[in-house]
């Protein structure tokens, strides 16, 4: 018998076998019987615990702080693109008057 004939037979043998419904039912009922019960988490009534969980613990606090600091930085630094936005809220007219405190001495050098 050729190898290829044997391989053909193997190919035929690879058909998935049909599982009888009764067997599937027995297997699933075993699964139900042995399944661990999902643990019930105790409810904590403390306010701070709830707030802490709401913010997201240390990870959430870190993110919150980063966002706050980034906001402050943007506010101070005023990148050009933002100036248009901030001017709409708080227009700041910068009037700079210069006082010539130290005039040059060139005029005094002219004779007469």
């Amino acid at each position: 018998m050729q190898d290829s004939d044997l391989d053909d037979l193997f190919g035929q043998a690879r058909q998935p076998v049909a599982v009888p419904a009764a067997l599937m039912a027995r297997v699933l009922s075993d699964a139900d019987a042995l399944q661990p019960v999902a643990p019930v988490r105790p409810r904590k009534a403390r306010l701070w615990q709830g707030l802490w969980a709401g913010i997201g613990g240390f990870g959430g606090l870190a993110g919150l702080s980063t966002a706050a600091m980034a906001g402050l930085w943007i506010g101070f630094a005023q990148p050009t693109a933002l100036v248009a936005v901030t001017d709409a809220f708080l227009p700041v007219d910068v009037v700079a008057e210069t006082y010539n405190i130290l005039p040059g001495f060139d005029e005094f050098l002219d004779e007469g």
Binding site: V17, A18, L28, A31, Q35, A38
Partner: peptide, 22 residues
Amino acid sequence: YASGDRAAAQELAARHLPLVLG
């Protein structure tokens, strides 16, 4: 399945029982 999900057992059985039986 170990955490209490009931549908997980059905999917596992559907996948593996034919192979195991064969």
